[in-house]
Every structure is written in C-alpha cells, then in structure tokens.
C-alpha cells in the first residue's frame, strides 16, 4: 500500500521539486481564478442564478463572521472566504478520478494553518497594538503566559492535524476499500467523504474566525467554539 504520509516529487523546476499537492493546488487555483474572473465580468445589479449563488455565499460568510466576531466583516472576508472556498474545493476534488486532494497532504494544511496563525498575530497587533496584544497573553494572570503561548501553537497544530487527518483518512479508507471491492462499495464512503470535507472546510473557516476574533478582541471571554476547540 502506498504510504499516505510521504509525497513524492513528480518533476522539478530547477532546484524546486514539484509534488502532486502543489500541482493539484495549481489546478484548483486556476479553476477558482478563472471562475472569479468570469463571474466578475458578468456582475450586474440584476443578478442571474450564478451571481445569486455567489452573493448568497458572500452574505452568509459576512453573517457568520459578524456573528462570531461582532465586527465589520470587511477586513476578514477575503481571508476566511478564500480559505473556506479553497478547502472545500480541495476536499471535493477527490471526486475527480486520479486526483488526490491537496489537503490530504500535511504540507497544504500546514500552509493554511500557518497563514491563519500569521493572520491572527497580524490582526491582533493591528487592532490592539503590539503592547496590548502581548499583554493579552497575560490574561487572566501572568501565570498563564506559557500556557497561552503553548495554546497558540497547539491549536494551530490541532488545526493542521484535524483537516489533514479527516481528509487523508477519507482518501485512505477509500483506497483500502477500493483495493478490496472496487465497484459500488466505495460510493457511500465517498458520500461520507463529501460530507466530511464540507464540514471540515466549514470548521476550518469557523476556527480561523474564532482565533482571529479572540486575538482582535483581546482579553474577552473565549467563545463557545473556542471552548470546543480547546477541549478536543
């Protein structure tokens, strides 16, 4: 059986080895960018079906961000929304024959979680100022400083591992079942994989929102989602 934890380079451009997830990400990026450009050209004030779907997506996203952060969603919309769309499309790309989802490889998830981590620090410093952002680590007392720092790292790791584990396990299980039966039997598992992929994309986006929100709000009480996260 193929080792799911190791990615083999397909080819290399100069010194840079290009692996399958990078190639898949490029394909997804190309599709998304083309779709965005195509949609942008046909944006009118009289929305057709596609534009309505896009607007529904953006409106729902704004509502979610506003509910979670109680702030104007405009600065965070593109980050959260792009992460959600990319993770969703990447998770669902397992339906395409011969395509392995880029999120089934830990490097992609690590890259996304890294971006979320950097964005957390960036928005926290930008909104509160460096001193107050650093002071928020001493909440509720200075004893909690190491714990808070460790929490920043562990929650990023849990973000990585959650997405990676879910998608990778789905791919792996389907691979095993496929090697056993081949026909029809993987279909329910693929359906479950779709559901898991959508839910994981949603969870990834929500957790990113919660992290950024808690960094922006400073010493406020953590929301319910963050409690769930720290307990899992």
């Amino acid at each position: 059986m193929e080792n799911p934890l190791i990615t083999e380079p397909l080819f290399s451009i100069g010194p840079v080895p290009i692996t399958a997830p990078v190639l898949g990400t490029w394909a997804i990026m190309a599709v998304l960018m083309a779709g965005a450009l195509w949609l942008r050209r046909r944006l009118t004030s009289q929305p057709d079906r596609v534009q309505t779907v896009a607007e529904l997506l953006v409106t729902t996203l704004d509502g979610q961000i506003r509910d979670t952060m109680r702030r104007d969603p405009a600065p965070y919309r593109s980050l959260i929304g792009a992460i959600f769309v990319f993770v969703l499309v990447a998770n669902w790309s397992s339906l395409i024959p011969g395509m392995e989802p880029p999120t089934a490889h830990i490097e992609t998830d690590a890259a996304l979680a890294l971006i979320v981590f950097v964005a957390t620090v960036y928005f926290g410093v930008k909104t509160q100022g460096l001193r107050r952002y650093l002071a928020s680590f001493a909440e509720p007392s200075w004893v909690m400083i190491p714990l808070n720092i460790v929490e920043q790292i562990t929650r990023t790791f849990s973000l990585i591992v959650r997405l990676f584990g879910n998608v990778m396990s789905g791919v792996f299980v389907i691979g095993i079942v496929l090697s056993l039966a081949g026909l029809f039997l993987p279909i329910p598992l693929m359906a479950l994989d779709l559901l898991t992929g959508a839910v994981q994309a949603y969870i990834f986006a929500v957790l990113a929102t919660v992290f950024i929100g808690s960094a922006v709000e400073g010493g406020h009480a953590p929301s319910a989602a963050e409690k769930q996260e720290s307990s899992s």
Binding site: L32, A36, L37, R40, L43, V58, A74, S78, G81, A82
Partner: peptide
C-alpha cells in the same frame, strides 16, 4: 486573488 477579484466586487 479571490479577495481582489471575487469577494470585493460581489460585496
């Protein structure tokens, strides 16, 4: 890219 060409115009 998505922020520039998708979310901003739609919003």
């Amino acid at each position: 890219f998505l922020g520039r060409f998708f979310f901003k115009p739609v919003s």
